[in-house]
Every structure is written in C-alpha cells, then in structure tokens.
Design a binder for these strands. Structure first.
Lengths: 139, 139
DNA sequence: GTAAACCTTAACGTTAACTTTAAGTCAATA
DNA sequence: TATTGACTTAAAGTTAACGTTAAGGTTTAC
C-alpha cells in the first residue's frame, strides 16, 4: 500500500506544498514516483515523517533535521552520531520544558493578581458583565 | 535608580537594538528619556520587560503582546480582558507542554532504539571509539 | 471526450522577528 | 580640541519557514 501526497497531507496535517518543500530541503529523500512522476509515499515514508515532525515540533531547525537525515542515509557508520544528536536534542527539549514550567508559574501568578485587581475594580466601578456572570452562575 | 539601555540589555539578555525594536513595536511604551534623548529605564520598566519576555518566551506573538500592552495602558476598564488573555495563553502553554511531553517520549524511544542498534553494529563491525569508551569506563 | 480534480516544477512573495547600516548627537577624556 | 565611544533615528537587509502563482501534464467522472 502506498499514498498520494494528498493522503499523506491529511494524515500528517502537512500541506502538500510543505511536503514537497521538505523533500526539496532533503528531509525525506527517496520518495518513489509513479511512471508519470507522481509521488507515491510508503509506510516507511510515513514513519520517517513521524520522526521529522517530532523533531521539528520540538524546535529542531530544518537544517539540522536535514543533517540527521543525511547521517541516516549513510547507514550504520553514523548510528553513534545520530544517537548523540538525539540525546543532545532531548536535553534541549527538557530545558525548554523547564523554562516553560517556570514561565507558566509566572503567568499563573499574574492571572491571580489580575483577578484580584479585577474583582476589586468591579466592586468599585460596577462591571455589568461581571455582575451578569455572577447572576447567571447563581441562577 | 534607573538604567541605561546597555544595563537593561545585560540584565535581560536582550540586545539594545532589540529593546529599541520592542519599544517601536509598542511593547514597552513610556520609557523615559534624559534631556538629550537617552533612554532611562526604571525598575517598573524592568518589571514590564519581565512579563513581556515571559509571554514572548512562551510563544506569544509580538503583535499579541502589543495588544496586551495597549489594554494595560487603558487602565482598570480592561482588567477583565487582560485576565482572559492570560488565561487563554496559559491554556496554550499547557497544551504546548503536553505536546512536548509526548514528543519527548518519542525522542527517548528513538534514542533507546538507536543505542541498541549501535551496540549491535559496534559488536559486528568493531567501532574503536565505542571500544575505547568501554575500556576507559572500566579502567 | 472533455471538464474537474488531481499532479508536476520553478520562481517569486510573505511573515515574523530580528539585524545591520548609515548618518548623526552627545559626554567624557587624552 | 579632537577623538572615542555610547547613545540616537530611519531605513534597508536577513533568515527561516513557509505560501502563492504560473504554466503545464495526468487521471478520473460523467
């Protein structure tokens, strides 16, 4: 079984032109073509795309993903390097997440602070939207 | 106490031209100037910058941050809206983090898989770097 | 058999977020 | 006093990651 670019597009949520762009940039080489030159994606291609998207969506630049792909093309010789790349990337993702966590707490604090301020403000100035919300909540 | 653009740059890790850019884009209005037109940042400005960076580093676009800033300038009337914006953003950050978590697991699986493959490959082909690493580890 | 809906390439356009450049002002120092 | 160095502005340039358009070939539905 193999897939057209549109089917892959639907599966991956990557638009056809993005799939072509990725291919042009060396992110998924070796995509087969029909006699008339139409792309035919295999299950393996979809597997690949899964990893590509994973790396891309965790912030790896396309250029670096390309490097990874090129290493993969060279076979077993580069397993160590690829392993190192992924381990490095893992660290970066973890660092990102920690940072996120920290910022999330800050946002939460701000929300608390604003909510407090808002209620005080609403009490003083009479915010109809707020009052209605309270009424409908209690209705 | 107030700060020059360079001092703020060092504190925030944002280069001077970025600080000017943010100001131009409406992210930190009301920065005072000396008689000769030199920016003098106050502690409050630094506070603001803290929130701006928090929002930016969690993926909020500059245009949206600008919106938030504009609401803030309008005073208490907009407290509710700001609160809502932050709550919305919080949700997005949480969603991002969950996605990250998922991808992180995938990367970890790949690392495991590659490590296994690598060790098998090294055993078959004799990877000197690997052997040396093992020797030094056991030494 | 022809029109609609797909596919192809190449090349140019867009957006966000900077980054650099050019040209000038100002304060302190050799 | 002149030059150094940090500041100022406006404007043009850069980068990544797409997105769009033009011009055409192929497949499928009626």
């Amino acid at each position: 079984m193999n897939y057209t670019i549109k089917q892959v597009s639907e599966k991956t949520h990557l638009k056809p032109h993005v799939l072509r762009y990725y291919e042009r940039e060396g992110l998924l080489p070796l995509v087969c073509r029909s006699e008339s030159g139409i792309r035919r994606y295999t299950e393996d291609d979809l597997e690949w795309l899964g990893l590509i998207c994973c790396l891309k969506n965790t912030g790896m630049a396309i250029r670096q993903i390309k490097e990874f792909v090129e290493l993969s093309m060279q076979g077993g010789e580069t397993l160590r390097q690829r392993c190192d790349m992924l381990a490095e990337h893992k660290k970066e993702v973890e660092a990102q997440m920690e940072e996120m966590q920290k910022y999330l707490r800050k946002v939460e604090h701000k929300i608390e602070y604003f909510t407090e301020q808002y209620q005080r403000y609403a009490a003083d100035h009479g915010d109809m939207a707020f009052k209605e919300a309270v009424i409908s909540k209690n209705a």
